[in-house]
Simulated scan of single mutants.
Amino acid sequence: MNSKAVIIVTSHADLGDTGRISGFWFNEMSAPYWALTDAGFDVDIASPKGGAAPFDPHGISDEEKSADTDRFLRSDVEQRKINATLAVHQLKAHDYAVTVFPGGFGTMWDLAQSEQVAAFVSAAYENGAILCAICHGQAGLIGAKKPDGTPLTKGMRLCCPPNSEEEANGVASIVPYLLETEFRKLGALFECGPDYSSKVVRDGRLITGQNGQSVDAAVRELLRAITELQPAPAMKS
């Protein structure tokens, strides 16, 4: 039985040419990390380039920081993981029962553009893994394909930040593409709730959360899918 999971974060630290520091959004990483760890999984953290993963500083501000983020920041073990992430090309898809893509604007510049990410996700899903992506983490699904070469998400129900949220955030003209537009092009069955509302869509082994407001619901659905689709791993002592 496979009791390993991997969280793949971005390696990209800049929000285009704005001068703003970006990266991954901390709670979208820390919430699934602890949920999986507490459920008995060994959780690796990876990124396209490996090494220290950049995070958006706003995500650890007083108004945004969560209990899961605080717990992560207080742990020397977890700090070593995020500062020495595995490179995606080092991962072997058959090692992992679960793959999670947290969001953060940095994802828009490297996850969809990475052949290694696309190959890993394609192989992981074909191998029976559960995929969970939150907010801009859905960028990690764009390049993945089915064995017949068609997009993995073609004909699958999913959600992501809608174009209207990107426009409201003021980033629609900054990010290299819009997720809603790209998934529609790929033939995905796009769904969304009202802007900035919690929305989670599950289609079999694919779980997607619309935005940062959807983190808790996405994690609950991920744990539900794990319970339904595979035996629970043995709890750590």
Rank of each mutant, 00 (worst) to 15 (best):
I7Q: 00
I8M: 10
I8W: 08
T10G: 08
T10R: 02
T10K: 09
T10Y: 04
T10P: 06
S11G: 14
H12G: 04
H12P: 05
H12W: 15
A13F: 03
A13G: 12
A13L: 08
A13H: 08
A13E: 11
D14L: 15
L15E: 04
L15T: 01
L15K: 02
G16D: 07
G16M: 11
G16W: 06
D17C: 06
T18A: 07
T18L: 10
T18W: 07
G19P: 03
R20C: 03
R20S: 12
R20W: 08
R20M: 10
I21N: 07
S22F: 01
S22W: 09
G23V: 13
G23Y: 02
G23P: 00
F24I: 11
F24D: 01
F24R: 04
F24K: 03
F24M: 09
F24N: 01
F24V: 06
W25A: 01
W25L: 03
W25Q: 03
F26M: 13
N27T: 07
N27E: 05
M29Q: 11
M29G: 13
M29V: 07
M29C: 11
S30A: 15
A31H: 01
A31R: 02
A31S: 15
A31K: 07
P32K: 08
P32G: 14
P32Y: 05
Y33C: 04
W34L: 12
W34M: 10
W34F: 14
A35L: 08
A35P: 00
L36G: 05
L36S: 05
L36Q: 00
D38N: 14
D38R: 09
D38F: 13
D38A: 12
D38E: 14
A39Q: 10
A39N: 11
G40C: 06
F41P: 06
F41Q: 06
F41K: 05
D42Y: 10
D42Q: 11
V43I: 12
D44F: 03
D44W: 04
D44R: 09
I45V: 09
I45F: 02
A46D: 06
S47D: 08
S47R: 02
P48N: 06
P48E: 03
P48S: 03
K49G: 12
K49I: 07
G50L: 11
G50N: 07
G51S: 12
G51L: 09
A52R: 12
A53G: 11
A53C: 14
A53M: 13
A53W: 01
A53V: 13
F55I: 12
F55N: 04
F55V: 08
F55T: 04
D56I: 12
D56C: 12
D56K: 02
P57C: 15
H58I: 11
G59M: 07
G59V: 10
G59P: 00
I60A: 11
S61F: 08
S61C: 10
D62E: 15
D62G: 04
E63S: 13
E63F: 15
E63D: 14
E64S: 01
E64T: 00
K65R: 15
K65N: 08
S66M: 04
A67N: 13
A67H: 08
A67D: 14
